[in-house]
Write a protein that binds this DNA or RNA. Structure first.
Length: 500
RNA sequence: GGUACCGUGGCCGAGAGACUAGGCAGAGCUCUGCAAAAGCUCGUACAGCGGUUUGAAUCCGCUCGGUACCUCCA
């Protein structure tokens, strides 16, 4: 896997054989998650699933940033209606709970496995304060007016041989000191590059805790250092997150942790996913171009031509490499939607094949070898820096073979029973277990399969109409179901299948 | 301004010195009562200009265009 820290691909080797500790930076729950947030959590979910599949016991920690300096989105607009705003004022924890729940709901829609631990920043104020105290005791932080800042310059000098400041993000401290920028609280810092460990809370600030330095709240970076070491130890295997977190967030984490843990580098492998873009621009709050996940699922957004199923999004993400930017577009998403549908139907066709009907040897040795090669390559591609795009490309090369067997264009004697069995197994493992994909057209779980029963009745009626050559009736049934989004297909063997 | 990165056929997107990536859309054909689905076939792309090389989309240089980070950010 590609390690951002060393800027090279490295073979993965866990610190403790058989075990993996993985920390992924979670969301800031001051507002609703958007499409951009889907990428890291799908990407690292697949990594988690893959490592688990490989037999590792993985402890996956993904934090929830629910403390800090933020206001509810849209609040400013509401403030214009001043009197109303007072009445509708939300308790900070209420706000944070609302968006945390919404985030978890969205993760479930994506079929992301729940992390082993999902620690919240507010639940670890004590740990963060302790860590700040330690950094101060070591002489790498100073207090000013109730806020505590990290002394980057001192760290950079003392740790230049172990974990040099700027190594992860490719930054030169001297260059950074030259950038002029007016920032809040800048005048309190000894140096522009310093960052806050603890911030004094102004009277109107919604979240505040008591600390040795007065009432305030933790700086953004300290939570990850504190919580990762608490649950994964001073050194763990994988640290993941979006590329935009590389600096200053991850750089700061490294610095804080190095001081508290005797110069140990907190994580061995640093993985960063690239951004989802929209018209070539990063999707982000500050660009005013976000599409929230709820909007994506419902289709209610001016940029959306239709609603998109969470599995379409998941598949869309997996069709590209995680370190490339991925450009959003209706045409692209619709392409993914159709592609996934076709792939999934091929997969279902495959699982319906009866392996015992295949011979012990392959009638078409060349095709048989090709199939085996394509399947073997799944792991090869995934082992090369998680290239899910290539794995999926192989699956699409297998689809015509599967459909060909079903459709009769390929003889059942062409492939050996062993190959079919292997194909069935591996497709299941990769599609469902590792990629975490699900049938995108599955009927809602609520109808208990009643819909299927109803459709079977209609299929039977249509069959009878067809038998007496009453094509008007049979076509009417088919067409009317089609307008409801249910498609009937007359199969070659006389049966009728349907999909949504 | 500093530091990286990117520019692939109508769209999305792999690849990275010689090999058809793949998907969607489009065209033709086969099967079919019709349709859909499925299968088969097709497009021969790598920003531009130079250079290195037997050979470059892939390496080097320049030009043009774009993005990200340097501030909260997935």
């Amino acid at each position: 896997m590609y390690n951002s820290y060393t800027r090279s691909k490295e073979p993965f080797q866990s610190i403790t054989p058989g075990h993996v500790g993985m920390y992924v930076c979670g969301p800031t729950v001051s507002g609703e998650s958007h499409l951009g947030h889907a990428r890291p959590y799908v990407t690292f979910d697949v990594l988690y699933r893959y490592l688990t599949h490989l037999g590792y016991k993985v402890r996956y920690v993904r934090n929830v940033t629910d403390a800090g300096h933020f206001e509810e989105e849209g609040r400013q607009a509401e403030d214009k209606i001043a009197s109303k705003a007072v009445l509708e004022k939300l308790e900070p924890m209420e706000l944070v709970t609302k968006y945390t729940n919404l985030f978890r709901w969205a993760m479930k829609q994506f079929n992301n496995v729940e992390p082993s631990i999902e620690p919240t920043a507010t639940g670890h104020i004590v740990e963060q304060i302790e860590m700040i105290k330690k950094i101060m005791a070591e002489g790498y932080a100073y207090e000013k007016n109730g806020s505590v800042y990290f002394d980057v310059k001192k760290y950079a000098e003392d740790f230049k041989d172990s974990n040099p400041y700027g190594k992860l993000s490719g930054r030169v401290l001297d260059d950074m000191l030259e950038t002029t920028r007016e920032l809040d609280g800048q005048e309190e810092k000894r140096d522009k590059a310093d960052f806050a460990l603890w911030k004094k809370a102004p009277p109107e600030h919604i979240m505040r805790w008591a600390s040795p330095w007065g009432e305030g709240f933790p700086g953004w970076h300290i939570e990850c250092s504190a919580m990762s070491s608490k649950y994964l130890g001073e050194e763990f295997d994988i640290h993941g997150g979006g590329m935009d977190l590389q600096f200053p967030h991850h750089e700061s984490e490294i610095a804080q942790s190095s001081i508290c843990h005797h110069g140990k580098l907190m994580a061995r492998y640093w993985l960063h996913n690239n951004m989802i873009t929209i018209n070539g621009k990063k999707m982000g709050k500050s660009y005013n171009n976000v599409i929230k996940l709820t909007e994506l699922f419902s289709g209610h957004h001016p940029l959306l031509e239709q609603a998109y199923h969470p599995m379409t999004i998941r598949f869309f993400i997996l069709q590209s490499h995680y370190r490339s930017t991925l450009d959003f577009g209706n045409e692209a998403l619709q392409g993914s939607e159709k592609a996934l549908k076709r792939l999934w139907e091929a997969y279902e066709n495959l699982q319906k094949l009866d392996a015992t009907k295949f011979g012990s040897s392959a009638g078409d040795a060349q095709l048989d070898a090709k199939v085996n090669k394509l399947v073997t390559e799944f792991a090869e591609f995934m082992n090369d820096d998680l290239n899910s795009a290539k794995v999926i490309a192989n699956m699409f090369e297998l689809a015509p073979v599967i459909n060909g067997i079903k459709g009769g264009q390929i003889a059942t004697t062409a492939l050996s029973a062993a190959t079919i069995t292997q194909l069935q197994l591996q497709m299941k493992v990769w599609l469902e277990d590792i990629f975490g994909l699900q049938n995108p057209s599955a009927a809602g779980a609520t109808d208990d399969g009643k819909l299927g029963g109803v459709i079977e009745v209609l299929i039977q009626l249509r069959k009878e109409a067809k038998a007496r050559k009453d094509y008007q009736t049979s076509d009417a049934i088919r067409n009317q179901l089609m307008t409801l989004g249910i498609q009937l297909k007359d199969e070659k063997d006389g049966t009728v299948s349907w999909s949504m």
